[in-house]
């Protein structure tokens, strides 16, 4: 059984991953919609940018985020003006790092499920007097829901495992930014940490597998 300290690490990870998915949800849905329904040459570029964190080394993503959110950077200063604190090396930084690396998985799942929605249903909706946004909320979104929830769970699983960008942007502060992967990395470098590593790895594998299975199940669910 994990010790209370290890349990805190796991809970922090779950909290960070859940928050990361929550903040990604609205931008992810909008981006997925634009990518699925917008026919413009710029779309390919946008899609490339969105997918970038999937192929970049996470450490590079972390560096880019630090570059954007550092104390003297515009976004970092905006954050300071907004919250009075600094972003780097906080739990919020963990959430941002996890959100950014999970974002491509979320958007791709949403994009594909929206492509699967019959456009003629949207046309009929508009001819019945519902505007573009109304049609999106009443027709497109509900019909894309299975893919959307599968994507959200997948992004959650990816966020749970996030290490590279997190260590750069958020560091390794116990109780604040030490998530499961960061804790495992720390314990591996400590004499006598092997037992704790085994416990955390077991929990990590179990959580990730459960999330994946749930994601498969959700994406297999079909609308009549």
């Amino acid at each position: 059984m994990p010790t209370p300290a290890e349990l805190d690490v796991v809970l922090l990870s779950v909290r960070v991953a859940a928050l990361a998915v929550m903040v990604s949800l609205v931008p992810g849905i909008l981006t997925g919609w634009v990518l699925a329904r917008w026919n413009h040459p710029v779309r390919t570029l946008l899609q490339g940018l969105v997918m970038l964190p999937l192929v970049l080394p996470p450490v590079v993503t972390g560096y880019l985020l630090l570059f954007l959110f550092g104390r003297s950077r515009p976004l970092g200063q905006a954050w300071h003006a907004l919250t009075g604190g600094h972003l780097a090396y906080t739990t919020a930084a963990c959430v941002i790092a996890a959100a950014v690396v999970g974002f491509p998985l979320l958007v791709e799942a949403i994009r594909l499920s929206m492509l699967g929605v019959d456009r003629r249903l949207e046309q009929v909706s508009r001819s019945l007097g519902r505007g573009r946004l109304d049609t999106f909320v009443r027709v497109t979104l509900p019909l894309a829901l299975p893919g959307l929830s599968a994507g959200a769970v997948l992004a959650f699983a990816r966020a749970l495992g996030e290490f590279g960008a997190t260590i750069v942007l958020a560091g390794n502060i116990a109780g604040e930014t030490r998530t499961v992967p960061v804790a495992v990395y720390t314990l591996l470098n400590m004499r006598g940490g092997e037992d704790a590593v085994v416990r955390l790895v077991t929990v990590s594998v179990a959580l990730s597998l459960a999330a994946l299975l749930l994601s498969f199940r959700l994406s297999a669910r079909r609308r009549p």
Binding site: S127, L128, G131
Partner: peptide
């Protein structure tokens, strides 16, 4: 725009 035209469409399917 289509939603303001009040022309309701009924299609083959």
């Amino acid at each position: 725009p289509p939603e303001k035209r009040r022309l309701a469409l009924v299609t083959q399917d």
